[in-house]
């Protein structure tokens, strides 16, 4: 089981500092939520962790392996996987083949990958969708497919970027249950989520970002009582949904 560590991550886009000195530790069997208003830098943190964007400062490691200079593909092979906020299906391929793409990482042959993919799809109640072209899925199923693809890589640490965005309440509930099961499996989870109810139900820790800077960090109960957080971001709405 793996511990994902981010230390002092910083990223500037031209004059804009999108991420400023962000540090955290995500432990196996725990869920760390990153919240913050639009443009706070949450997705950029994921891009820095997975190597899609090079940091201007700071470092990332999984267990004791330093990820400095490693490509996204190598980081995934090392056990760190992510979903994309804007889902990235292989549109022309069937749902099963989409998941096979992820399963190939740990499988020696396509047949084996297909076995793994079927299992993952069944875990997500998606078996009936195997032959549907990914491009034809409705948004809820696309979010689940995004999950299925990365889970097929058997990650030790998993980054979920707004996997509940656009889901209807019943789907949100199922997704929450599913993410809890992933936690039980001992995966280190980092979750970006706007859906505050889900955040409160899932999180062991919460990290709040504003303008790229961490403004609070701690257990859900602490963070929600933090006056800085309340005034800076969450406001009255949050007090309602959080209670």
């Amino acid at each position: 089981m793996a511990v994902l560590t981010a230390t002092g991550l910083t990223k500037r886009f031209g004059g804009l500092t999108a991420v400023k000195n962000v540090s955290f530790i995500a432990r196996p069997g725990e869920i760390l939520s990153i919240i913050g208003p639009n443009g706070a830098g949450k997705t950029t943190v994921f891009n820095l962790l997975t190597g899609f964007v090079r940091p201007d400062g700071g470092s990332v490691s999984l267990d004791n392996q330093d990820f400095r200079g490693m490509s996204p593909e190598s980081r995934c092979r090392a056990g760190l996987a992510r979903t994309f906020q804007i889902v990235q299906p292989f549109r022309g391929l069937s749902v099963l083949d989409n998941v096979v793409m992820g399963a190939m990482l740990r499988a020696r042959s396509i047949e084996m990958a297909r076995e793994i993919a079927r299992q993952v799809l069944s875990d997500l109640d998606m078996s009936a969708l195997c032959d549907v072209p990914a491009g034809q899925l409705p948004i809820g199923d696309r979010k689940r497919l995004e999950m299925a693809k990365v889970l097929a890589t058997s990650p030790r640490a998993l980054l979920l970027d707004e996997v509940m965005g656009g889901l209807i309440p019943i789907e949100v509930k199922r997704m929450i249950d599913f993410i809890r099961r992933l936690r039980e499996r001992g995966i280190a989870l980092v979750v970006i989520e706007h859906h505050m109810n889900a955040v409160m139900q899932l999180s062991d820790h919460i990290l709040v970002l504003q303008n790229g800077e961490p403004i609070a960090n701690g257990a859900p109960a602490e963070v929600t009582r933090d006056p800085v957080v309340l005034s800076a971001y969450l406001g009255a709405n949050f007090a309602l949904s959080g209670s």
Binding site: P72, A81, F84, F90, M101, L105
Partner: peptide, 14 residues
């Protein structure tokens, strides 16, 4: 995978 979506392929360790 590369042809269909390069970033998605990279994110899956391909």
């Amino acid at each position: 995978a590369f042809r269909e979506n390069h970033d998605a392929a990279r994110a899956l360790g391909i």
